[in-house]
Design a protein around this nucleic acid. Structure first.
Lengths: 214, 214, 214, 214
DNA sequence: AATGAATGAGCATTCATTCAT
DNA sequence: CATGAATGAATGCTCATTCAT
């Protein structure tokens, strides 16, 4: 399954490099998540990888570049997953559960990178944020699309502001995502269920809702 | 109403100092909010105040001390207000509106300090966080108390986890608070209304809620 | 004789700073002259001044800035002196002597700065070289002007290329200037005399010059 | 004409190595000429050669070694050519033209190496400069010899200081050599003519020279 | 009450050099 | 012959902090 245009040794070298680059990104993610971008040192990252400080520059051109790559890594596959969720035929409640699951489970697999993306991406100069911004917008727009569909299907209240709700969903998820990263004991599935429950049903007892209806 | 044990000139001096100290805290809050604790320099804060870098140490013993004071300043009166809200006799919906209002309007008045409290307080060494932690816990516990009352009164669904919901409310509010600080054009009252609406009623159309009930 | 618009203490502070800045420039000049711009370290310069490395940045914003200031310092008064020489009424031979004297004696007073200007200025990015370039051009043009006058007055051979000769004079002077800096024992006045003698009369015996005339 | 004690394949390998070594020296010369010894990196040289940084050490034991070899390469054949010029029977004027031609034309063929020799050789530790120094002294002494002969033959003014004039000739040539390297448009032969003209005849009109004679 | 000056430790980054493959 | 990978020391620069005035 090797492409014919490159010698095998080079492919191996590339693969080796690529593997270690992932290690580098994850080390950077861990350190940035714990200490913040400016509070972290390249020495911290290098130590985390078990290499010398200077050697880090074989993998990142600069500390800023490292932050950028961590943020992008944290968002990888994110949009795709939202696309899949949106395109499937299933009741709205199931979609919402899938959305929250996708968002929160990411915190457990690429936990640090996501946290870094949320908390530290603004320390990047705008030039470096182009891709990250694009992905974030796409994500939110897809989410808004799901919500609009929900309204069209007569499942969601037509008076909600999809833009506002989309932001709020992301806000709740990020808020709990932070807790998930900080606290290993927190149960992922319980958290997912409670989040989607809150988003769907709010806190009031249904029968009391008559008050709300005009 | 001046205390008799200090000469008037000193009192005036103190008053002047106190006034400028507030300026210092707000300058620090602004800078920390924009650049993060580690990304900000004492020079930045001094410039913001229009004084020399060295003179800053007349107001703060250290940069860390400044962060601590900003965080505490950001939380001032917070707990008190929650206490008042909890003790008043009023329908749950009104209480929730009051809670969200208290939380979010703070972002517009002490905006930067609150943002700093949320985003940067973890960069303080634990020993400096004692007061801040205590205030935060009290706040959350009061909020949980309000929720429990709601359940006892038969207004809130008894199956909700008050701990989880309290955290979520704070999460949504902080998330939107960040937007309020970042985006001056965002309408405060509309945001407040939509937040409490989401928390109370969720997103589904009431009649569809039958699905949820067993 | 103090200007009325600034408090005396500030004037003193400025004067103190200005004095130490000269010390800084001369220290930098010495170090750059000895080791070259890239071979010199900011530690070297600080040591030469008897201060800590970090303190150097109180006087120079960057190492490059230091080089720029050294180069400009090395050329200070240079153009003015050439202007004076050109405007005086005196035989051409005397003017040439004055020119060489001006150029070479500078190597003994601001010796290192001049050497640095000649050898290292090209390591400055073009933006930083604007003033230095302008001064250099003015200097050469003034020199060419003197040569043209010499031709007009019938003293200089009309077949010489004033542009070429100006460059050559500067070349000879810089070449000997380098020796003057390197070798303290070298006699300044003898060097001056021999330089202007060579420029004026060449090396051939006059009577042999008939060969040259057509 | 192959020496019998080495297998042909090795000789071919050596020849190949020698050819590439020249390439290496010229790459180093170019880079050193442009950026200075300390301003140049081994990466720069390797890039210039189209090889990897680490591979450079196959051709040079160290960066310093590279500088040494560039300087020596720049001076190769130099002394020999001066010897030839000195030993030929020809009028002094012709000799001077030959000397300047030899010196300046070298700047166009081995241009960078010569420039490096002139500007950067002092960054070599003394022990590495032995050969270079010896060659330089020989060169200057040969030149002085030619000048002395000129005096003995009654062509040169007996009052000139041959040591001073030799240095001056080298100074003028190096000064113009730098220009030749920097400015490709500069005409080599014109420059040569004007240089030797200046050295021989100075700038004054012959008839005016009476003033000079006592 | 404020400042100019200095400090010294820390940090990101560069780079000559080495070496197993 | 050549390279990828790594090293470790050095270096320019920043910055919190101090202190005499």
């Amino acid at each position: 399954m090797q492409s014919a245009d490159k010698p095998i040794t080079l492919q191996i070298a590339n693969r080796k490099y690529a593997r270690k680059k992932i290690v580098a990104i994850e080390a950077a993610a861990l350190v940035f998540a714990e200490k913040g971008f400016h509070g972290a040192t390249t020495q911290d990252i290098a130590s985390e990888m078990g290499i010398q400080q200077g050697s880090l520059y074989y993998y990142f051109k600069s500390k800023e570049q490292a932050l950028q790559e961590v943020c992008e890594y944290g968002f990888e596959n994110y949009v795709e997953r939202m696309q899949k969720i949106g395109s499937k035929e299933q009741p709205f409640e199931a979609k919402m559960l899938a959305i929250v699951t996708s968002h929160l489970s990411n915190y457990r697999s690429k936990n640090n990178a996501m946290k870094v993306h949320n908390d530290q991406r603004l320390y990047l100069p705008v030039e470096r944020r182009a891709l990250i911004k694009k992905l974030g917008s796409e994500y939110r727009e897809l989410l808004e699309g799901v919500l609009k569909e929900g309204i069209d299907e007569g499942v969601l209240r037509p008076d909600i502001d999809t833009h506002f709700i989309a932001y709020s969903i992301i806000g709740i998820c990020n808020s709990w995502g932070g807790n998930l990263v900080r606290d290993d004991a927190l149960d992922l599935f319980e958290t997912i269920e409670q989040c989607s429950d809150l988003i769907l049903y709010g806190t009031l007892i249904p029968t009391k809702r008559n008050k709300h209806e005009k």
